[in-house]
């Protein structure tokens, strides 16, 4: 599956700011289908990892309390223009998605 994640990474001085937008329903397992009344099973991202080269700059563990189509911004130092930021998420069904963006 082609990644639907969007990443923007911009460096200013020594600080790189990354903004990522993921595509995911983030169902927390408490919602109901309005027509059938059936509970919508939990389906949400549990783990997020951001790497620059071999260095892991950030790892996140999430619940279904993160909003649908999650937005995440974070900052780090020690990178340069042209370096690649790689973000990977894994959800509770084992689906995983990775996207890479070059620091501008």
């Amino acid at each position: 599956m082609a990644s639907q994640m969007k990443i923007k990474a911009k460096i200013k001085g020594d600080v790189t700011e990354v903004k990522a937008l993921m595509t995911h329903p983030m169902e927390n397992g408490m919602g109901k289908n309005k027509e059938t009344g059936e509970v919508i099973p939990a389906h949400f991202i549990q783990n997020v990892t951001a790497k620059v080269g071999a260095n892991t700059v950030l790892t996140g563990i999430w619940s279904g309390g993160v909003s649908k189509n999650p937005y995440l911004a974070f900052r780090f130092t020690g990178a340069a223009k042209g370096d690649k930021v790689e973000i990977t998420w894994t959800d509770n069904k084992g689906t995983t998605e990775t996207e890479v963006a070059e620091i501008e």
Partner: peptide, 16 residues
């Protein structure tokens, strides 16, 4: 969130 090497203590996201 665990901050790795070089990470600044900054996080922005959207929650329910």
């Amino acid at each position: 969130f665990e901050l790795g090497k070089g990470a600044l203590p900054f996080i922005s996201t959207r929650i329910k």
